[in-house]
């Protein structure tokens, strides 16, 4: 297990992550106002995934954690995706 305390994140990386998150939110809102049809669903969701990844990696420091924790996180996200995917197999082809 990684028992070491990782070094604190630098102010610079925190500020850059914050700016990236704000920029992505602005893109998401702009796309939604522009009414682009199907893109109105997939662009905000895709941007949401990107924003969540930034928060998990840079604010929650998952990138500095032990690989076992990263694997655990991946398993949780994939289980959730599997639940949703399997439900849709039922919902869409009922």
């Amino acid at each position: 297990m990684s028992a070491e305390n990782h070094a604190p994140a630098s102010y610079r990386s925190i500020v850059l992550t914050y700016l990236a998150l704000l920029l992505l939110a602005a893109v998401s809102v702009t796309v939604s106002i522009c009414h682009l049809g199907a893109a109105n669903v997939w662009v905000p969701l895709g941007i949401g995934v990107l924003q969540a990844a930034l928060v998990v990696m840079y604010f929650m420091h998952l990138r500095k954690e032990h690989w076992l924790w990263q694997l655990l996180f991946l398993i949780v996200v994939m289980s959730l995706e599997m639940f949703i995917g399997l439900t849709f197999v039922d919902v869409l082809y009922r």
Binding site: S28, S32, N40, P44, L45, G48, Q51, V55
Partner: peptide, 19 residues
């Protein structure tokens, strides 16, 4: 707090943006 933030990151497009 970050997790609560991430949940809003998804709630916001689902309830406000996707029309």
């Amino acid at each position: 707090w970050h997790l609560v933030d991430i949940i809003w990151i998804f709630l916001f497009p689902l309830y406000y943006l996707m029309h």
